Simulated assay, not measured.
Amino acid sequence: MRVITLNVNGIRAAVGKGLYAWLPSQDADVICLQETKAQLGALPARYRTLPGYALYGCDAERKGYSGVAIFTRLPPREVRCGIGWEEADREGRYLQIDLGPVRVASVYVPSGSAGPERQEAKYRFLDAFLAFLRRLRGDGHEYILCGDWNIAHRPIDLANWRGNQRNSGFLPEERVWLDRVFDELGFVDAFRVVNREPGQYTWWSNRGRAWEKNVGWRIDYQIVTPGLRGRVRAAAIYREQRFSDHAPLIMDYDLEVPG
């Protein structure tokens, strides 16, 4: 089973940069997208159509903002939009499909980089989301939680960690929150199961030739329940083309899901 996640930073922009021309070559079963910045149902068909896949979306109420989506070629038993917390659900930050043996979600954690008000909103989301994740761990299902979590966990996960310790995305409180996700709740950073190398980033600033120099952050994850740790087979970050300020994270799992 192959799962791809990508923050597209605007679905129309990413399609214009060739995303839908590239995706069929990847033979993915599930494709999770974040920051679609669209009311998906109102888009022209070329932005909503990928042959062989069904599209599900969870839009923000505010036009041109946030939003998550999933393309799947496996028919879901159930689709869930939101975590049951109004502030997050108005912003379209969580979409989940039930595929039977596994549930796959597209997650978009808020950024706090715009200033103190947005950082406080991020902390509120993290509190609510941790409670939601705790409920997931208790429901007996396996999960692959894909998306832009907007936190680099450890110094290995960003190029300039010393200079970013007071910046949103690498604040001590945010990193401790991820510690709780992994250590207290038992979730697993699937990428690090198979790749422990430095220099593995998924987001680059548009300033200072960061992409060219690989001065980036690893803030996009596939975070899985512990029962899937032994099912992780391969991981890759695709950088040959640039569809967004993020790169696609491609992961393979030893899972058979009936079509």
Rank of each mutant, 00 (worst) to 15 (best):
G169C: 09
I223K: 01
R175W: 07
V107H: 06
F182W: 05
I31A: 07
F243I: 09
L19E: 12
F187E: 10
K213S: 06
H141D: 11
D157G: 09
A210V: 06
R154V: 11
N167I: 10
G57K: 04
G227E: 10
R135A: 15
F125S: 06
D245S: 06
W203L: 10
E197F: 07
G216L: 13
A105V: 05
V215S: 06
I11Q: 11
R209Y: 14
R192A: 15
N164I: 08
V68M: 08
A88P: 04
A121I: 05
R2C: 01
L23C: 02
R46D: 09
Y65M: 01
V15W: 03
P198S: 08
A38W: 01
L40A: 14
E87N: 05
M251F: 02
Q39Y: 09
A159E: 10
L136W: 10
S168G: 10
L255N: 07
F129E: 02
D157Y: 06
I83G: 09
R231I: 07
A54D: 07
Q222D: 09
V8C: 05
W211I: 05
T225V: 08
W85H: 13
R77K: 14
R233A: 14
K37E: 02
P76V: 00
R46V: 11
L33I: 12
R166E: 15
L228M: 06
P198V: 13
G208S: 15
F191D: 03
I97D: 00
L255K: 07
D27G: 14
G82M: 02
P248I: 11
P155I: 11
W204P: 12
C58R: 08
Y123A: 08
R12G: 00
V79I: 15
A121D: 13
R93K: 14
C81R: 14
E87T: 04
Y94G: 01
F129C: 12
G16K: 12
L50V: 02
W149H: 14
H141F: 01
A235M: 06
Y238I: 15
R233E: 15
L145E: 08
E212C: 06
